[in-house]
């Protein structure tokens, strides 16, 4: 039942065995030890499992592990090779998170946004982050940190 797949995980070539039914999120957490993506709903509603496949954000609870055979997967752990991202620095300064459970998802999402669109408007930031739920902060401090990162005004 197990099949071997090859995945570029956070810049490192990895060979792992998966079952076709294994969910990517579980593969990342349990087989690769990458615990920053987390399960909040298991059905794509909350975004706390967000990772990048070939640079594009996905909800890893709605992807099979076996689907990423031959692909590049990046989690928050893999975005910090050169230290903290600017957006992380702003989030740290701004006390952007409270319980912190949603933080990895938000940071991965904001990274994708700023890669695709370095100068987003406030509305574009809100739209890009709308698939990530946070129950603690009321979002404002998260959004403000992203705005500060890209120097966006209106």
């Amino acid at each position: 039942m197990n099949q071997e797949i090859k995945v570029m995980v956070n810049g490192e070539k990895r060979k792992i065995e998966v079952k076709p039914t294994d969910i990517l999120l579980d593969v990342l957490r349990n087989k690769l030890g990458l615990k920053s993506p987390k399960c909040g709903c298991g059905r794509g509603d909350c975004g706390t499992c967000t990772v990048l496949i070939n640079g594009k954000s996905v909800k890893s609870c709605l992807v099979l592990g076996i689907e990423v055979d031959g692909q590049e997967v990046t989690t928050l752990e893999g975005l910090m090779d050169n230290g903290l991202l600017r957006v992380q620095e702003k989030m740290l300064e701004g006390n952007s998170f409270q319980c912190g459970f949603c933080a990895p998802g938000f940071i991965v999402m904001s990274h994708e946004l700023l890669e695709e669109n370095p100068g987003p408007t406030k509305e574009e930031i809100k739209e890009a982050m709308a698939g990530n739920l946070c129950r603690c902060t009321g979002y404002t401090p998260i959004l403000e940190a992203i705005e500060k990162t890209c120097g966006c005004k209106e």
Binding site: R29, K38, L84
Partner: peptide, 23 residues
């Protein structure tokens, strides 16, 4: 004073561990 959160760095780096993150 509005000092920065003590748990801030752990949380923004994904290092903060929650029960399901423990092995």
């Amino acid at each position: 004073k509005s000092v920065v959160r003590q748990d801030g760095l752990e949380k923004i780096t994904g290092a903060a561990q929650y029960v399901d993150d423990l092995d």
